[in-house]
Simulated scan of single mutants.
Amino acid sequence: MTTSMTSDTTTTALNGDFNALTLTETDTYLLVEITRPEVRNAIDETMVSELHEVCSYLELNPKILIITGCEANGKGIFVSGADIGQMRDRRRDDALRGINNMLFHRIAQLPAPVIAAVDGYALGGGMELALAADFRLATPGAKFGQPEAGLGIIAAAGGLWRLKALIGEAVAKEILLAGKILDGNEALAVHLVTEVHKPAELLDAALALAGRIAKLDPLAVRISKQVMAMPAGAHPQVDNIAQAILFESEAKFDRMQAFLDRKKNK
Rank of each mutant, 00 (worst) to 15 (best):
residue 197 H to L: 09
residue 162 R to V: 10
residue 181 I to T: 14
residue 215 K to L: 15
residue 184 G to D: 10
residue 199 P to M: 09
residue 176 L to W: 01
residue 164 K to E: 15
residue 191 H to D: 13
residue 190 V to F: 08
residue 175 I to V: 15
residue 164 K to D: 15
residue 147 P to F: 11
residue 179 G to I: 01
residue 184 G to M: 11
residue 151 L to F: 13
residue 188 L to G: 06
residue 171 V to A: 14
residue 174 E to H: 11
residue 209 L to M: 09
residue 180 K to F: 09
residue 206 A to D: 07
residue 213 I to F: 10
residue 227 V to F: 04
residue 148 E to D: 14
residue 145 G to S: 15
residue 194 T to I: 05
residue 149 A to Y: 03
residue 214 A to C: 01
residue 147 P to I: 08
residue 155 A to K: 03
residue 173 K to N: 10
residue 158 G to K: 14
residue 230 M to R: 09
residue 216 L to S: 09
residue 187 A to Q: 10
residue 229 A to K: 12
residue 168 G to M: 15
residue 196 V to R: 01
residue 197 H to Q: 12
residue 193 V to S: 02
residue 195 E to F: 02
residue 223 I to P: 15
residue 178 A to G: 00
residue 152 G to P: 14
residue 167 I to G: 07
residue 218 P to Q: 03
residue 206 A to C: 09
residue 201 E to L: 04
residue 227 V to T: 11
residue 230 M to H: 06
residue 226 Q to P: 07
residue 234 A to S: 12
residue 197 H to C: 05
residue 187 A to V: 11
residue 172 A to T: 09
residue 151 L to T: 03
residue 234 A to T: 04
residue 162 R to D: 12
residue 188 L to A: 13
residue 195 E to R: 11
residue 207 L to K: 05
residue 153 I to P: 00
residue 159 G to W: 11
residue 215 K to I: 11
residue 234 A to I: 03
residue 219 L to N: 13
residue 217 D to E: 14
residue 159 G to Q: 12
residue 214 A to N: 07
residue 219 L to D: 15
residue 178 A to V: 00
residue 197 H to P: 04
residue 152 G to S: 14
residue 212 R to I: 01
residue 167 I to Y: 05
residue 231 P to H: 09
residue 232 A to G: 13
residue 227 V to M: 09
residue 208 A to Q: 13
residue 186 E to P: 02
residue 150 G to Y: 12
residue 174 E to I: 07
residue 171 V to H: 13
residue 221 V to S: 13
residue 163 L to H: 11
residue 196 V to K: 01
residue 176 L to D: 04
residue 158 G to H: 14
residue 183 D to S: 02
residue 225 K to V: 10
residue 146 Q to E: 15
residue 181 I to D: 03
residue 178 A to E: 14
residue 190 V to P: 03
residue 162 R to G: 08
residue 153 I to W: 05
residue 220 A to M: 09
residue 203 L to V: 03
residue 179 G to R: 00
residue 207 L to N: 06
residue 202 L to H: 02
residue 205 A to P: 05
residue 179 G to H: 02
residue 221 V to H: 11
residue 149 A to Q: 02
residue 210 A to T: 03
residue 184 G to I: 09
residue 208 A to P: 02
residue 148 E to R: 04
residue 154 I to F: 10
residue 170 A to W: 00
residue 182 L to K: 07
residue 230 M to E: 11
residue 214 A to K: 00
residue 214 A to D: 06
residue 208 A to C: 08
residue 165 A to P: 04
residue 234 A to V: 03
residue 216 L to G: 03
residue 235 H to A: 05
residue 146 Q to G: 13
residue 169 E to N: 08
residue 186 E to V: 00
residue 216 L to W: 00
residue 220 A to R: 12
residue 161 W to I: 08
residue 218 P to F: 04
residue 183 D to K: 01
residue 170 A to K: 06
residue 167 I to D: 05
residue 156 A to H: 07
residue 195 E to N: 07
residue 157 A to K: 08
residue 206 A to M: 10
residue 179 G to N: 01
